[in-house]
Amino acid sequence: MDVHDAATRSRNMAAVKASHTKPELQIRKALHAAGLRYRLHVKDLPGKPDLVFPRFRAVIFVNGCFWHQHDCHLFKWPATREEFWRAKIVRNVANDERAIAGLEAAGWRVAIIWECALKGKARIEFPTAMQRLIAWIQSDEKAITIRGG
């Protein structure tokens, strides 16, 4: 790999956002329109959840299927730099598990909405996904996972 390839790859990876992604913004807009108020990326909580609802003691993670190794059609192991990607993605999954366990131990309820619920061939209708999410936020259910059909 020459210097140009490394620089291009570095720029491409820098363009990948960890927060304020399109799916996250779409969900935030819908929840705000439903009258729900939240905090964003609270650093004091394990895993720095995407949305935090202190009133309901609930948090939401909006997970990209690739970055969090979801078992859906949107996840595929990369064919290049396999060792690097496996280590990175396995580490992400371990971090997710640790964060969820820490949140639950502290009395927080955890929702995970997967990217495949919102895009791709298995997506579900956005209003349906938001109705499920809103009902969960306002309930006493401990956890929910929303994924593509």
Rank of each mutant, 00 (worst) to 15 (best):
R57D: 14
A58S: 10
I60G: 01
F61I: 06
V62I: 05
G64F: 13
C65L: 08
C65Y: 08
C65G: 11
C65T: 08
F66I: 15
H70M: 05
H73G: 11
L74W: 07
F75H: 04
K76Q: 14
K76T: 14
W77D: 12
W77E: 15
W77I: 10
A79V: 10
T80V: 14
R81K: 10
R81P: 00
R81E: 08
E82K: 06
E83F: 00
F84A: 01
W85R: 02
R86Y: 10
R86N: 14
R86Q: 15
K88S: 02
K88D: 03
V90G: 06
V90L: 11
N92S: 07
N92G: 05
N92D: 05
N92C: 04
N92Y: 01
V93H: 06
V93P: 07
V93Q: 08
V93D: 06
A94S: 09
N95K: 15
N95D: 15
E97A: 15
E97W: 09
E97P: 07
E97M: 13
R98W: 08
R98L: 12
I100G: 12
I100M: 14
A101D: 14
G102I: 13
G102F: 13
L103K: 13
A105W: 12
A105V: 12
A106H: 12
A106S: 14
W108Y: 09
W108R: 10
R109H: 05
A111C: 11
I112F: 13
W114F: 08
W114H: 06
E115P: 11
C116Q: 08
A117L: 05
K121G: 06
K121V: 07
K121E: 09
K121I: 06
A122S: 03
A122R: 01
I124M: 07
I124A: 00
F126G: 00
F126L: 00
P127A: 02
P127M: 01
P127L: 01
M130A: 05
M130K: 00
M130S: 01
Q131P: 03
Q131M: 07
